[in-house]
Simulated assay, not measured.
Amino acid sequence: MANVFEVAQTLIQHIQTRFKGDIALVAYYGSYAQGTATSRSDLDFFFIPSTPQGFRAALSFLCGGISFDFWPIRWERAERMAAFEEPNTSIIADCKLLYVRSDADLARFEQLRKRISETGKPSLALIEKAENHLRDAYVHMYQMSLLHNDSTGNLTLFRTEAHGVLTHALYALALLNGTYFTKGWGKNTEQINQFHLKPARLDEHMHTFMQTSETKEIQTASEQLVQDMLELLNAQKAHYAAGPDYKGRMKGFYEEIRGQFDKLLTACEANDYTTAFFWSIGAQDEIARFLYYSRNGYWPSAVLATADYMHEYIAVGLPDLPKLLASDRLSELRDMILLLDERLRSLLQSHTVHIAEFETPQQLELYLDQRG
Rank of each mutant, 00 (worst) to 15 (best):
D308L: 00
L325G: 03
N3G: 05
P87R: 05
L97K: 14
W185P: 03
D44L: 02
A356C: 06
G184S: 15
A315Y: 02
F278E: 06
V165W: 01
A305N: 12
E269Q: 14
Y99V: 06
D103V: 08
A172G: 09
L146M: 11
A24D: 15
S67F: 08
M250H: 10
H140S: 04
D228Q: 02
E118Y: 05
A93V: 04
K20P: 05
F5M: 05
W71C: 06
P199I: 01
H354M: 09
Y298F: 07
A241Q: 09
V165E: 01
K114F: 01
R74S: 15
Q224R: 13
Q260R: 12
G317E: 06
R135M: 04
F109Q: 08
A24Q: 14
F158L: 11
Q219S: 14
R40V: 00
Q211I: 00
Q13I: 00
K237Q: 13
P322V: 02
S301Q: 04
A58V: 00
F46W: 09
H133G: 03
F209L: 00
E110F: 08
S117D: 13
S222N: 13
L202D: 14
E190L: 00
E365L: 09
R258S: 13
H168F: 01
A83H: 05
T89H: 06
T156P: 04
R258H: 13
M81E: 15
M310Q: 08
